[in-house]
């Protein structure tokens, strides 16, 4: 049944989105502010699927019964001409199902060190103005995340202004040829809408064993700031006292 097949496609889209919500991978893709839209879409796909399945049954009933209501018959003939162009072609079916197939076959993973390669990384400060958040700026030093600190640094022209201040930060490790054996970049992606606009931010961390840390490894760094330099630019650098490997947070991205 054509209607039955379309109903199944709708159900699989509903299931796919629903499973992203329940297994927590939804936040690998979009800002949590928009999760309610995904939830509404699950309901929407489900309702549309019901519409298709209801009509599939209607058609079957009509084939079964010999005595047909005249009005229904006429109605159906009229609709049939409407449906004519809506045969779901095989290519169309594959394309519509592609997100579901890719989502189920390729293991879900958030953007990481590899994706930083061809994006502009904001190191030690934000290369652009982000919406200032008074509430976050008021957070105490212990509560500040990587984005909060970079915003704080943006407000000051003197990288030495933060010398001695303590911080405890979570992020993933990024290293390239610009880093010596004793430093790495603690990084996060900032996502305002979905991963299409993900912007990587980073902070230089001094740590004697930095070369032993693998890229993409999530770590929690405790330490204090000291004015330093990276890539010929002076900026506050985090002198690590302790580095603990940690699991990836439930929300791998930061949301401005």
């Amino acid at each position: 049944m054509k209607n039955g097949l379309k109903g199944l496609v709708m159900l699989s889209l509903a299931y796919f989105l629903f499973s992203r919500i329940t297994n927590g991978t939804l936040f690998f893709y979009i800002n949590n502010r928009f999760a309610w839209l995904t939830f509404l879409a699950v309901i929407g796909f489900f309702v549309v699927a019901l519409g298709y399945l209801y009509r599939a049954r209607l058609v079957r009933d009509m084939l079964d019964t010999t005595e047909e209501d005249d009005h229904d018959h006429e109605h159906h003939a009229h609709e049939h001409s409407h449906d004519h162009e809506h045969n779901l072609s095989r290519v169309g079916l594959v394309l519509v199902m592609l997100p579901v197939i890719l989502g189920l076959v390729v293991p879900a993973s958030p953007l990481g060190a590899v994706a930083m390669g061809n994006r502009e990384v904001s190191v030690g400060r934000l290369s652009s103005a982000m919406a200032p958040r008074e509430s976050r700026m008021a957070a105490s030093n212990r509560e500040k995340n990587l984005l909060d600190w970079l915003m704080t640094f943006d407000g000051s022209a003197d990288p030495a202004a933060f010398d001695g201040q303590e911080a405890k930060l979570t992020g993933f490790v990024y290293r390239d040829s610009r880093h010596g054996d004793d430093s790495f970049m603690l990084s996060r992606f900032v996502v305002s809408c979905c991963v299409a606009d993900a912007t990587p931010i980073g902070l230089i961390v001094q740590w004697p064993d930095a070369s032993a840390l693998a890229s993409d490894q999530w770590v929690e760094v405790a330490g204090h700031f000291k004015a330093g330099a990276f890539d010929g630019r002076s900026m506050p650098v985090l002198m690590a006292d302790e580095i603990k490997p940690t699991a990836m947070p439930n929300q791998p991205y930061l949301f401005p």
Binding site: Y29, I30, L37, P99, P110, L111, C193
Partner: peptide
């Protein structure tokens, strides 16, 4: 794949 699904889901 992550970026593709991100745009699609959004």
């Amino acid at each position: 794949v992550t970026i593709f699904l991100g745009i699609f889901i959004e």
